[in-house]
Every structure is written in structure tokens, then in C-alpha cells.
């Protein structure tokens, strides 16, 4: 196992770097999409609500692999060619965004009605009310489920290896194909994913939860 790691750590490391890059890009996209569609789903306009519902149901109703293939192989037929790295994080981000939109919606609905009324009473505009009163409180309420969603997102990035993005999963498959040291290479990859999720992502989310709770005086 040790000489295996000595020999192949540069490739595993570069794969981990790509996985982290995919994760960050998809997370930014996913959070933005969640906010937009989460708010759109609460809109009073029927068309806006309909678009948001359709988006959420389509992306939650089909699987990420299918979405990934569709974006990478079918969109070029419509004249929209994207390279595999971009297609990867777009697919993962859009998928997670659909799940996140439901969390945003739930978080906003969980803010007590009195907060809305108080914001109206002090003459805030709709935008001010959302940004300064509702969203900060909604954010605290929905952060714990977001932690789980972020782990799902990290796991989702493993699928971009199927369109040949050189992430950790891809490197592991390549090394496996040339050496047949399956237990070592896939074992190492499993452990790296576990470390990323359990010892980097989860503590970050816990820290964020604490910071947000303190800012709202709830700690």
C-alpha cells in the first residue's frame, strides 16, 4: 500500500484538486440557483412559480447522470458546445440547485409571520424585507440540511469522471486500468473522499452554523 501511494500520489493529488475545483464551482452555481428558484417558488406570479416548479421537478425527477449526459452530449446538437469541465459543474450545480431551492423555500416559510409583519410596519420595501429580515433568519434555519446537501454535492462531482473530467474518480479509474491494483487505488480514493467530506466539509459547515447563529444572537 505504501509503495503504491509513493508511486501514484501525484495523480491522486491532482485528481483531488480537480474534484475540489468542481465542488467549489458547482457549489457557487448551486447556491445561486437555489436562491433564485427558492424565491421564485414563493412568488405571487403564477408564471414565475410555474417555471420554478417545473425546473425543480425536472431536475429532482431525473437522475444526475442522465442530466450530465444530456448537457454534455445533447446540448452540442443545439449548437451549444461546452467543454467537459464546464459541463460537469453545470450539471452538478443545477441538480443540487433544484434540491437547494426546496430548502430555501422551507427556510423562508419557517420564519415566523410576525417578522414579516414587523418589517412591513417599519415601512421596508419588499427587497429590504427579504434581504435584511427574512433571509438571514431563513439561512440559520436551513443551514443544517445544507450540510447534508453539500456532502451530496461532493459525491455528485464523482460522476463528472464519466465525461472524462480528470477528477479523483477519473484518476482512480485510470490507475486501476493500468495496474489492476483495485483494492489499493479505489480504497485510497474512498478514503480521500471520506476525509474531504468528514474532516473538511462537515467542520466548515458546523463553523458556518455557529457564526450565523452568533450573528443573530442565538448562540
Amino acid at each position: 500500500m505504501l509503495d503504491f501511494l509513493v508511486l501514484y500520489w501525484p495523480r491522486l493529488l491532482s485528481g483531488t484538486g480537480i474534484t475540489i475545483a468542481q465542488f467549489l464551482a458547482a457549489a457557487v452555481l448551486g447556491v445561486a440557483i437555489s436562491l433564485v428558484f427558492g424565491l421564485a417558488k414563493l412568488s405571487s406570479t403564477l408564471i414565475v412559480r410555474g417555471i420554478a416548479t417545473t425546473y425543480i421537478e425536472v431536475f429532482r425527477g431525473t437522475s444526475l447522470v442522465v442530466q450530465l449526459y444530456w448537457i454534455f452530449f445533447v446540448l452540442p446538437l443545439f449548437g451549444l458546445t461546452i467543454d467537459n469541465f464546464t459541463a460537469g459543474y453545470i450539471a452538478v450545480g443545477m441538480n443540487i440547485g433544484a434540491y437547494g431551492a426546496e430548502l430555501v423555500r422551507g427556510g423562508i416559510l419557517s420564519v415566523p409571520k410576525g417578522q414579516w409583519e414587523a418589517a412591513v410596519a417599519v415601512n421596508m420595501s419588499g427587497f429590504q424585507r427579504m434581504r435584511r429580515i427574512i433571509l438571514p433568519q431563513a439561512l440559520v434555519n436551513m443551514l443544517p440540511p445544507w450540510g447534508n446537501l453539500m456532502i451530496e454535492l461532493l459525491k455528485g462531482t464523482a460522476l463528472v469522471s464519466l465525461i472524462s473530467v480528470g477528477d479523483l474518480m477519473f484518476q482512480a479509474r485510470q490507475i486501476n486500468a493500468s495496474t489492476f491494483l483495485s483494492a489499493q487505488v479505489f480504497g485510497a480514493a474512498l478514503i480521500i473522499y471520506y476525509i474531504l467530506a468528514r474532516f473538511m466539509l462537515t467542520p466548515c459547515m458546523r463553523w458556518l452554523e455557529r457564526v450565523m447563529a452568533r450573528k443573530l444572537g442565538r448562540a
Binding site: I151, L154, K155, G156, A158, L159, S161, L162, M169, A172, R173, N176, F180, S182, A183, F186, G187, A189, L190, Y193, Y194, A197, R198
Partner: peptide, 18 residues
């Protein structure tokens, strides 16, 4: 729960024969 299913599928499929 914190590792990708696709990696687990590969792990089980390739490690058994080893």
C-alpha cells in the same frame, strides 16, 4: 454515506476478483 456510490460500485466490482 460520505463517499460516492459510483466509487463504491467500482470498488465492489473490481476488488472482488483481486
Amino acid at each position: 454515506r460520505s463517499t460516492p456510490l459510483i466509487l463504491q460500485i467500482f470498488f465492489i466490482f473490481y476488488v472482488g476478483p483481486q
